[in-house]
Structure formats: structure tokens, C-alpha cells
Nucleic acid binder design. Structure first.
Length: 293
DNA sequence: ATGTAGACTTGTAGAT
DNA sequence: TTACTACAAGTCTACA
């Protein structure tokens, strides 16, 4: 489910219902995706949720320092990554429990914050208040906030394919496969172009495309491919505005050519072969994976 | 520095 | 109908 717009949608939903409430207990199912399961039950009860923030694709629940000896470690953060199929939301205890729900954080008012994740590619971890800045610094810039000069500087001279760099969370935080392809289509840049070979007009178009697409996707509450729903359980709408992603063989909205699919940076990549001309040089584009065996 | 394949895991769609 | 394959919003590691 979750790239920047989907995570932002979840965060906005949680922000209306979580701050001010206190975690009273924790129940866990499968824990292989949790950094330190025992620490959750030990350190979370008694802490109040102060804020809900998004750091790229991570969700940060900022918790109070709590009280008593076991909370002498000060302010704490519950940091959650949704992986491919994660979901986080608040339900009443009597509400049906979705399959693959692996964490329940019970609140003082009886409700519970639930984490559901079919594939368990997600992540749950605790980060001490004092370590949060270092955690955030390992991530790149927010694409909705980055200046033109910084955007250019981060890509200048890089010989990697532009799509690989857009997906690199240490360069920009929050962009994933869908929004990389949508942004490159909007900016008319082939995903396999080398960043170093893009001129400033290309880069300016790309930055604006990313901003515009992410903003629109947030307004539409994300893209519901397969199983994404927001914190209230409602699907997003942005998948109806996709111009490239998932549209192999369908006509380009600009020129009518058939959208193609290839593999770039190890991910399926959708692009218009006419609007997004392939780089001349090398074997920049591999064919889509073929059946093996 | 960069690219690729494979790994983690479960479900679903599609071809046979 | 059943069995099988490819693929999926993400990221990490090993190896070239």
C-alpha cells in the first residue's frame, strides 16, 4: 500500500483520534517483523501519545516520557513502517479483527490501535527520543519540501538511473514505485535515463511533477491498488488518475502510444515509449521478466 | 559507485 | 476444477 501519499493519509486519520490517549497494554501475534517485541510490552504501557508524524514512509507516534522507574528513559517513539501491505488504525474491541493483525495497542478508553500486515514486510520499532534526530537524518529530503537547488544538487553527476535514485530513501524520502513512474511520465523522462545526463530543464520539470503528483495523490487519499485503505477503512481514489503505472498496453494520455512495461532498478516500470524516449547509449532497459523454468 | 538477482512473505490473477 | 507461474505499495544482502 504505502508510499508517501498513502502513509500521509493514514497519518492524518490517526492524528484525529490518537493524540492525548494512553497505551495501557500491548498484545502481539507474529513478531518476526518487530525489532524487540518484549520491549513493546515493557516500555509502552502508561505512555501517552503526544503527536503523530510521518517521516518519509515511516509513521512516528511520539510518546510521553511516562512516569515511574521503568520510564526513566524519557521520551519514546513508536516507529512503524507499513512495508507493502501494512495497515494501522483504531478499532473498538468488538470490531472484527482483520486477518494478519499482529499487534494490538490497547488505549485507556477501551479502543485499540491495530497493526495488520499480510506479508509482514513492515517494521515496528522503538526509538528513544534522543535517537530520533539521528534516525531522521538517515533519510533523504522530503520531496514536498525540497528546494530546486537542493533537488538538482542531490542528482547532479550521479551516473545511476533516475528511477533508481528516486526510489533511494536516503536521497528523497517517501517516493515509491507508483509515484516514481507517474512523476517520470509527467516530466517526460524515461526511467532508465542516467541522472547525470538530465539537463536543468529536465530536473526542473521532474521536481515539479513529483510535487504536483504527490500533492494530488494526498488530496485523493492515496492509490488503492489491491488492498490499501485509510485508517478508517476507506479506499483512496488516486489510482483513477494514474497515467503510467499499471497501464501496460493502454494508450498514453498525451500521445496515444501504447504504454510499455520494462524493468528498471529491479522494479516494474511503466512508461510511454514516445513521450519518454529511451536513452541512446547503452542497454538501458531490460525487458520485463519472462517466465522461467 | 552501480547494477542485478534473490531473499523475506502471503495472496491473487491469469494461463493451461 | 486444479496446479502452477508471475507479480505485487518495500527494503536488505550478496555478488559482479
Amino acid at each position: 500500500m504505502p508510499e508517501l501519499p498513502e502513509v500521509e493519509t493514514i497519518v492524518r486519520g490517526l492524528r484525529t483520534v490518537l493524540p492525548g490517549h494512553t497505551i495501557v497494554s500491548v498484545r502481539l501475534g507474529k513478531t518476526d517483523f518487530i525489532e524487540d517485541p518484549a520491549a513493546l510490552a515493557e516500555l509502552l504501557p502508561g505512555r501517552r501519545i503526544e503527536r503523530v508524524e510521518r517521516l518519509g514512509k515511516f509513521i512516528q507516534l511520539q510518546l510521553s516520557a511516562g512516569s515511574g522507574a521503568k520510564h526513566a528513559d524519557g521520551q519514546m517513539n513508536l516507529v512503524i513502517h507499513l512495508g507493502m501491505t501494512g495497515w494501522l488504525g483504531v478499532r473498538r474491541p468488538e470490531d472484527p479483527v482483520a486477518p494478519h493483525t499482529h499487534a494490538f495497542f490497547e488505549l485507556e478508553d477501551g479502543r485499540e490501535l491495530r497493526y495488520t500486515d499480510i506479508r509482514r514486510f513492515g517494521q515496528i520499532r522503538l526509538v528513544h527520543g534522543g535517537n530520533m534526530a539521528a534516525f531522521s537524518e538517515r533519510l533523504g529530503k522530503e520531496p514536498l519540501e525540497i528546494s530546486a537547488s537542493e533537488f538538482h544538487a542531490r542528482l547532479a553527476g550521479r551516473r545511476a538511473r533516475i528511477k533508481a535514485l528516486l526510489l533511494d530513501q536516503s536521497i528523497f524520502r517517501g517516493i515509491g514505485n507508483i509515484y516514481a513512474d507517474e512523476s517520470l511520465w509527467q516530466a517526460r523522462i524515461h526511467p532508465a535515463r542516467l541522472a547525470a545526463r538530465l539537463n536543468s530543464a529536465d530536473l526542473a520539470r521532474l521536481r515539479k511533477a513529483i510535487r504536483r503528483i504527490l500533492q494530488h495523490a494526498i488530496e485523493d487519499r492515496g492509490s488503492s491498488i489491491s488492498n490499501f485503505v485509510d485508517a478508517e477503512g476507506q479506499p483512496g481514489e488516486y489510482q483513477q488518475r494514474h497515467r503510467a503505472y499499471g497501464r501496460e498496453g493502454k494508450p498514453c494520455f498525451r500521445c496515444g502510444s501504447k504504454i510499455r512495461r520494462g524493468s528498471v532498478a529491479g522494479r516494474s516500470s511503466y512508461f510511454c515509449p514516445r513521450c519518454q524516449p529511451a536513452p541512446r547509449r547503452a542497454r538501458a532497459m531490460r525487458n520485463a521478466p519472462k517466465p522461467r523454468g
